[in-house]
């Protein structure tokens, strides 16, 4: 009779290595993504809809933006934070993400493909001429 491959059923030391590797990947990706942001200046939000930038502005200037597509998103910037206050998308992740206040944070609505990104000196101007 062919013996079926019977897995080990109790955690072993080698499982811990997998755990450490995954944790390392988490920390590594966190550093890669957030580490380069560096000094945070006044935050700027960039909103893209299906890959196209539809709005950009400074977080300290209050503004309301609506995204109309298959679903409808109400985005409110209150001068200190930006949030999706209402959406009729099925997942509601964008609304539940809550408020974004710091450079590096982002709010994503996958069904409507909307990305709200807060950037610091990273994508705002580094210097001004003229």
């Amino acid at each position: 009779m062919k013996s079926k491959s019977s897995p080990k059923l109790r955690p072993t030391f080698f499982d811990a290595i997998v755990v450490v590797l995954v944790a390392a990947l988490a920390l590594g990706s966190a550093w890669w993504f957030y580490g380069g942001l560096g000094r945070s200046g006044p935050a700027t939000y960039i909103i893209t809809h299906q890959g196209q930038e539809i709005a950009r502005g400074e977080l300290r200037q209050p503004r309301e933006i609506t995204v109309e597509g298959q679903y409808h998103l109400q985005i409110v910037c209150d001068g200190e934070s930006i949030a999706v206050t209402h959406s009729d998308c099925p997942t509601q992740d964008c609304v539940r993400t809550g408020r974004a206040t710091h450079p590096g944070q982002s709010i994503v609505c996958l069904p409507e493909q909307v990305v709200i990104k807060l950037v610091g000196s990273g994508s705002g101007p580094d210097l001004v001429i003229g």
Binding site: S123, L127, V128
Partner: peptide
């Protein structure tokens, strides 16, 4: 107002120069 942007930012991206 005479600007020179050298190399890249630490994250490898270009420098953003705003034209007033």
């Amino acid at each position: 107002g005479n600007v020179y942007a050298h190399g890249t930012k630490p994250d490898g991206s270009f420098w953003n120069v705003a034209v007033r």
